[in-house]
Design a protein around this nucleic acid. Sequence first.
DNA 1: CCGTTTGGTTTATAATATAAACTACTTTAT
DNA 2: ATAAAGTAGTTTATATTATAAACCAAACGG
Lengths: 96, 96
Amino acid sequence: MADFKSLDPLLHSQLRLAIMSILISVESAEFVYLKEKTNATAGNLSVQLDKLSNAGYIETIKSFKGKKPLTTCKITKTGIEAFEAYVKALKGYIGD
Amino acid sequence: MADFKSLDPLLHSQLRLAIMSILISVESAEFVYLKEKTNATAGNLSVQLDKLSNAGYIETIKSFKGKKPLTTCKITKTGIEAFEAYVKALKGYIGD
DNA sequence: CCGTTTGGTTTATAATATAAACTACTTTAT
DNA sequence: ATAAAGTAGTTTATATTATAAACCAAACGG
């Protein structure tokens, strides 16, 4: 019988989950790329990246591409572990 | 490449998802049974059942067990479809 | 220059989840 | 018979979250 392990609230959010889903499969991703892939507004994306960053799930590196600001995101080891734990827990709900 | 289909907000909630997860695998379930299985407070459970009910995802039948009130819940066809669609969408995020 | 676009951040508002308080009984103990 | 405690919920208030709207600074285009 399925036991319902608690779902990390930081990951149980459509946008943050999408962000993590992307970041787990690439070396790193730029703000604009994430924005396009997730269809998020810049504001929403900014806020959610902050949360993931504060939790230590991702790392954001601020630099410049030519003269424009560039925010690059990378998942951390902690983030990978959290994502994997979340997926595992989730499967207890959706039945494998 | 994973496309991020929108996750039905009604199902993308830990408690409501747990409720639906139970109801999809049984003929029907009583309020108290759901409360125990999900570890929810009665208040929270009541509110979330209402939401699922208003969405037509479940049906709640009020009767009496002896002299005590009894609320029995049953998933509907709409609910089953919504749950299946949710699971399918979710898999686009967590990679199969 | 002046308006527009790019790449964001901050802040305000709407939506959600959760807990606490309450209702309406029933059962048990005195 | 009555008070205290328990059961099965509902309602309401509050805290948290998500989202959008407004904003900022620099760069580009005419």
